[in-house]
C-alpha cells in the first residue's frame, strides 16, 4: 500500500458548527512525515471517532489538537488548527491555557502517584479554579460523580489512586480531565487496556459527557465507534480517507479502503 497521490478526503469532513478545525495539517517526526494534508472539522458537542490501522497516525493527529506533540523534540506540525476560530499554533498562544481547554485521556490509565482526591484536585489547583477548600471538595465530588466513580471511591478519597482497578483508574483519569472543565476532550484508545465491563461503563460515560463537551476518540473497536460516535473519520497511512456519519461509514462506506478496513481485511 502506498500513499495515494493528490488524495482528497471523501465524505463530509466539514460541519456547520465546528469547535475545532484542522486545515491541511501535516506532521513530521524529524524527516519522516506521519500525517499528510489532513483537513477535518470537529463539531461542537459531537463525538467523533478516529479509526484506522495501527500506525496510520490517529494518535499523532489527536495529539496535534492540544499541542501535546510539543513535548516531542523532533515533532513538527504544518497547516492550521483553530479552536473557536483561533489558531492554536500561533506563536503567541500559550499551550497551558490551551490544554486546559482541550483535555486529554490516554491509552494506558496514568493516575499520578497521589491520593484519589489529589489526582482530581491537581488540575483545579494548578489552574487556580477553586477559591476555597470547600469549592475544591465540590469540584472533586462533581467530577467523580460525572465519571461515575463517586460511589466506588467516596470512602477512600485519600487512598492512592494507583490502588484502583484498571477501569477505575481510567475513569479517575477522565474525572481528572473533567475537573479542569475543558471544552474538548481527546481520548486515545481509552478502553484498550480495560475489560468489557469497564469498557461499557466508559462508553456510557462518553455518551453522557457529550452534552457538555466535544469529544474526539481514537479507537480500534468498530463496535465502540458505532456505539459512541456521531461521525467517524478513517485514517490510512497518515491520510484522512473518509469522514461520514458513523452509521453511514459502517453500512455504506464510500472509499474502498474504508470498506476493506471495516470488513476486517486489514487492521
Amino acid at each position: 500500500m502506498s500513499i495515494i497521490e493528490n488524495h482528497t478526503t471523501n465524505g463530509q469532513p466539514f460541519c456547520k458548527d465546528p469547535k475545532l478545525t484542522a486545515r491541511g495539517v501535516g506532521v513530521f517526526y524529524g524527516e519522516k512525515q506521519a500525517i499528510f494534508d489532513v483537513s477535518l472539522d470537529i463539531g461542537a458537542n459531537e463525538v467523533i471517532a478516529l479509526i484506522g490501522p495501527s500506525g496510520c497516525g490517529k494518535s499523532t493527529f489527536l495529539r496535534c489538537l492540544n499541542r501535546m506533540n510539543d513535548t516531542i523534540d523532533i515533532c513538527r506540525v504544518t497547516g492550521a488548527i483553530e479552536l473557536d476560530g483561533e489558531d492554536i499554533y500561533d506563536p503567541k498562544v500559550d499551550v497551558v491555557p490551551l490544554r486546559a481547554r482541550v483535555g486529554m485521556v490516554f491509552q494506558k490509565p496514568n493516575p499520578f502517584p497521589k491520593s484519589i482526591y489529589d489526582n482530581i484536585a491537581y488540575g483545579p489547583r494548578i489552574h487556580g479554579l477553586a477559591q476555597s477548600r470547600v469549592e475544591l471538595d465540590e469540584i472533586v465530588e462533581k467530577s467523580l460523580q460525572r465519571a461515575g466513580l463517586w460511589n466506588e471511591v467516596k470512602d477512600r478519597l485519600h487512598a492512592p489512586g494507583t490502588g484502583l482497578s484498571g477501569g477505575q483508574q481510567q475513569r479517575l483519569c477522565i474525572a481528572r480531565t473533567i475537573a479542569v472543565d475543558p471544552e474538548v476532550i481527546l481520548m486515545d484508545e481509552p478502553c484498550s487496556a480495560l475489560d468489557p465491563i469497564a469498557t461499557a461503563k466508559i462508553e456510557e460515560l462518553i455518551d453522557e459527557l457529550r452534552e457538555n463537551y466535544t469529544i474526539a476518540i481514537v479507537t480500534h473497536s468498530m463496535q465502540q465507534a458505532a456505539r459512541v460516535s456521531q461521525r467517524t473519520a478513517y485514517f490510512h497511512l497518515g491520510q484522512l480517507i473518509e469522514v461520514n456519519p458513523t452509521d453511514q461509514v459502517f453500512t455504506t462506506p464510500e472509499h474502498a479502503l474504508t470498506e476493506a478496513y471495516i470488513t476486517g481485511r486489514f487492521g
Binding site: M68, T71, V96, R99, G103, M104, F106, N110, F112, Y122
Partner: peptide, 19 residues
Amino acid sequence: SLRDGSYGLGATRSETVRQ
C-alpha cells in the same frame, strides 16, 4: 505517561516536575 498526564491537563513544566 505521568508527564503526559500532567501536560495533558495544562500543567506547566515546573508544575509537572514539582508536583
